[in-house]
Amino acid sequence: MSHDIPLNWFLYFAAASFSIGLIGVLVRRNAIAVLMAIEIMLNAANINFVAFWRYGETPPGASPLSGVMVAVFVITVAAAEVAVGIGLILLCYRRWHAADVDRYDSLSG
């Protein structure tokens, strides 16, 4: 069966997509694009969690699926975060008519 994929490969994939997400966060100016890049980062972390859960061993007393549980809750958090983020972006968009982060200029910073 699928027992021949090394753990490392999943980790490489997660690390690569995490780095891509980080680059996206830093490079993009549009707030929605930044939000998408953040989602990529969260997904990368989720892959890590599930891969470690599948390949690792759980200590006794610990939850037998803590990695999966973390992933489930991270998906929840991501959904909430996107909702909140889009609300904030729409609010700012109505004030400035732009969704670019560096156009907002009411604060000196």
């Binding site: 997904n43 489930v72 998906i75 959904a79 996107v82």
Partner: peptide, 27 residues
């Protein structure tokens, strides 16, 4: 591939079904 089919279903439902659509609306 990691044998977490339940999570895959959740991923498709929540991320693709909700999050991505929400992002599209925002765009």
């Amino acid at each position: 591939l990691l044998e977490a089919e339940f999570l895959a279903a959740v991923q498709v439902l929540v991320y693709i079904g909700a999050v991505a659509i929400l992002l599209m609306f925002a765009i």
